[in-house]
């Protein structure tokens, strides 16, 4: 399933990042967002969601949330 459908507060394991933008992929990687790592949706907001990756918080938009398979 996609990150958009994740339940708030539950920890998921990332299966895949669906993007053909290699630089973005590498960037997400350096944040610790890559298949095999865990990710938690802290809350869903209108334009995307707030996620916790490693020990930091990020806001990502719906398009990106749609590319993260968990």
């Amino acid at each position: 399933m996609k990150l958009i459908d994740a339940i708030e507060g539950q920890e998921y394991v990332i299966q895949d990042i669906e993007t053909d933008d290699e630089e973005l992929d590498a960037f997400l990687f350096s944040l610790g967002c890559y298949s095999g790592e865990t990710i938690t949706v802290v809350s869903h907001i209108k334009s995307g969601c707030v996620v916790s990756i490693k020990d930091a918080r990020y806001t990502i938009d719906n398009q990106l949330a749609d590319a993260i398979v968990i």
Binding site: L28, A56, R57, Y58, T59, I60, D61, Q63, L64
Partner: peptide
């Protein structure tokens, strides 16, 4: 185009 937005909080 697809543009992704990610920002650290």
């Amino acid at each position: 185009r697809k543009s992704f937005f990610i920002i650290e909080l």
